[in-house]
Structures are given as C-alpha cells and as structure tokens.
C-alpha cells in the first residue's frame, strides 16, 4: 500500500500527460477533455514544486538554527544566512501584498541590485579561475584526445576575444566553424544517445521498474 499508491500516481499522471501529445478529445467514459486535464496537471506540478521549495528552506533553517542554538563553530555565519533569508523572504512577500509602498519597493530593489545580483556574479566569476586552473591540470596535452580538447578550447577563446582578431583575423572564422560544424556534430550524437537513455529511464519509472525515488524501507 505504501509503495503501490505512489507507483499508481506516477503511472496515471505520466500516461495522462504522454497521451495528451498523441490523442485529443475526452478521456473515455468521462467528459474530461484530455488536453485540459494535462494542462491542469502541469499547473498542479508548479504548485507542488513550490511547496517542495518551502520544504528545502525549512530544512536549511533547521540545520542552521541548530548550529546557532548549540553555538557550533562559525555559528555567526549561520546567523547571517538565516537573517538574509528572512529579509529577502519577508521583503518580497510584503512588496507582493503592498505594491504601492514605495520605500519598501526601493529597499527590495536595493537588496536585489546590491546583494543578490553582484554577489551571485562574484561567486560565478570565481569559478572562472577554478575552471581555468582545474582544466590546466586535467587537460594537459598528455594524449592526442586531450590535445584536441585543449586545441579546440584555445581556438574558441581566441576566436571570441578581441586579441584573437588582432593576432590573426582567421581565428573568428575557425572558431565559428568549430562551433557550427564540429560542435553541432558532437552535440547531435550525444543528444541522440541522451534521448534514447532518458526515454528508457522514463519508461522504467512509468511502469514501476525504477523505484529509487520512493526511497528505502516501507
């Protein structure tokens, strides 16, 4: 019972959505229009996912609240996290309910423009350094394949950067060819393989052969 009902839910929801791509009209024996049912189910998915996001935040707060309560190492950082989470959430909700409050809207815009957006850009920009250093170690031209990878990457960078054009005006043409011909070829092959694999996995989930999402135990 505890495992069968979830499997039935996955099957019914999955088959209904899948059928809506191939059939039209009403579901046999009912007056429900298949396309409408599929649209409703997809909309419900967004609502359930929103609740799931709330669950994730509750978990995050629980972990950090425990860290603060027990004054574990770096607990002050946990305070920063919880306070920043609360501020962004409360301000966002307030602005949603009272959109005419100009001072709160300005505050909301300021925290977005001066905290969320630049800090996010900085975090991802840091990754640029690590991608470069990690790739140097990983892709040192130790084999023919690694040389191909490194060569393609260098040509792409030279083709995109202004210095590449200054060095040799053919770099953008070469990088364009790599992008449009070689990259499309590889991506196409990978995507076809990926689609077959994803479809097989989806079918396994649909008929209940794959039950990893149900977790272990009863």
């Amino acid at each position: 019972m505890r495992r069968e009902i979830p499997l039935i839910i996955t099957f019914v929801v999955g088959i209904t959505l899948l059928s809506s791509y191939f059939f039209s009209g009403t579901i046999p024996g009912t007056t429900w229009v298949l396309a409408k049912v599929a649209t409703d189910i997809t909309g419900w998915g967004i609502i359930v996912t929103a609740f799931a996001a709330g669950l994730a935040s509750v978990n995050l707060i629980r972990i950090h609240a425990e860290k603060i309560a027990r004054k574990r190492q770096d607990w002050i950082n946990s305070v920063a996290l919880v306070v920043s989470l609360a501020v962004f959430f409360v301000v966002g909700v307030y602005v949603k309910h009272y959109p005419k409050n100009i001072s709160m809207r300005t505050f909301s815009q300021n925290i977005f423009d001066n905290i969320y957006s630049p800090y996010g850009a900085a975090m991802f920009a840091i990754l640029g350094f690590y991608v470069a250093s990690a790739s140097y170690r990983a892709f040192r031209a130790r084999s023919f394949e690694a040389s191909l990878l490194l060569g393609a990457a260098v040509l792409m960078m030279l083709g995109s950067a202004p210095i590449g054009v200054l060095l040799w005006n053919q770099f953008p043409i070469i990088s364009g060819w790599l992008l449009n011909v070689v990259n499309s070829t590889g991506q196409r092959g990978i995507n076809i393989g990926l689609a077959i694999g994803a479809f097989a996995t989806a079918m396994r989930l649909l008929i209940g052969l794959d039950r990893g999402h149900l977790g272990s135990g009863e």
Partner: peptide, 27 residues
Amino acid sequence: RFFEHVFVGAAAGYFLQMNYVNILDRA
C-alpha cells in the same frame, strides 16, 4: 565564508518568496 552565507541565504529567501507568490497566484 560570512558573505558566502549571506549570498546563500539571499538566494534561498528570494527563491522561497518566488514560490510563495506561485502558491498564492496559482493556488
């Protein structure tokens, strides 16, 4: 570490608020 936590909290709060709006508007 301090500002990393501030960013994670901000991202989580912003994400949570967006989902709150989704629940409100769609449900």
